[in-house]
């Protein structure tokens, strides 16, 4: 089956400084691919090139087999792009925004009516159709922007940090909507700096300084964290700090009342023993995606 999005060796430099190096990916219908990375990692650059808004220095982007550079006009109806900032007119009402974008895409009156109803129900914006977009809450703005992006029923949805600056509840709700879309057969490519959001993607790529430093399913990635984490409850941080000084490379993190000790696998036995002698019982803590991510950023990969 032709992938909805197929990117090969995409690269781009700004003023001679590489912003994106050798990005490759494939995305099938119904798939959700996450592009994870800190600010400045090259996420926006990659997405703008995929939409044809930016010319790549090298590599190619194909959407359903069509080359983005050559067949720009044919590709536009196939993709929906939601840029990082809110993409709607604050001085127009919810209805007027939806209407403008549907007219821009040349929908017939019947199609417009039908999709308007469906998208308003889907985004739960029906009670606010006459309200100006500028007067909506952050979460509602985001949903309206999504609705405007979906009005022409694209096959591929590209979302650049769609929930940055949105409250946690609205973020949850927004990602539920994205999940519905993927189940409906749409292909989604989403960038985010949030690890909890990344966990919801089928496949993620960790982008750092323009390079993919790790990729896979979220569970695989956290599982491939090469170190071990031991959790201590209610221990005195000062005492523990003293104790672990004997072990080179062990890192101590505090999480509320618990302490996380990050060590190499071959240190684990010795460390446990030392803790036990001090009457401290350490429990193994499964690594999270965040642990994997920080390790990959610090070491350039997930290798030990």
């Amino acid at each position: 089956m032709t992938p909805v999005l197929d990117i090969r060796s995409l690269a781009r430099a700004w003023d001679g400084k590489p912003a994106l190096r050798d990005l490759s990916l494939t995305l099938q219908a119904g798939g959700m691919l996450g592009l994870i990375g800190p600010d400045g990692a090259g996420k926006t650059t990659a997405m703008r090139m995929a939409c044809g808004l930016l010319r790549p220095d090298g590599g190619e982007v194909r959407v359903l087999g069509l080359d983005v550079q050559r067949d720009g006009a044919a590709i536009r109806p196939l993709i929906g792009y939601m840029p990082q900032r809110f993409s709607l007119y604050p001085d127009l009402s919810v209805d007027e925004n939806l209407r403008f974008f549907s007219e821009l895409h040349g929908l017939s009156r019947d199609q417009r009516q039908q999709r308007r109803e469906r998208l308003l129900a889907f985004s739960r914006l029906e009670p606010f159709t006459r309200r100006r977009a500028g007067a909506l809450s952050g979460g509602m703005k985001q949903k309206l922007a999504l609705a405007c992006t979906l009005i022409h029923e694209p096959r591929l949805l590209i979302l650049d940090e769609p929930t940055t600056g949105v409250d946690p509840v609205s973020r949850q709700e927004f990602w539920d909507l994205l999940g519905d879309l993927a189940r409906g057969g749409m292909a989604l490519w989403v960038s985010t700096p949030y690890m909890d959001e990344a966990e919801r993607c089928g496949h993620i790529q960790l982008l750092h300084q323009g390079q993919v430093i790790a990729e896979g399913r979220p569970a695989e990635l956290s599982a491939s964290f090469p170190r071990r984490i031991l959790r201590l409850e209610g221990a005195d941080p000062q005492a523990v700090r003293q104790l672990v000084q004997a072990f080179a490379g062990v890192v101590l993190h505090r999480f509320g009342h618990s302490l996380h000790l990050v060590c190499d696998p071959d240190q684990e036995e010795g460390l446990r023993l030392a803790l036990r002698q001090a009457n401290l019982e350490a429990k193994p803590q499964p690594p999270t995606l965040e642990d994997a991510f920080f390790h990959a950023v610090a070491h350039g990969s997930l290798a030990a």
Partner: peptide, 10 residues
């Protein structure tokens, strides 16, 4: 507003 990019992909 970021709408220019929306218009450009329309």
């Amino acid at each position: 507003l970021g709408t220019l990019e929306q218009l450009l992909v329309s």
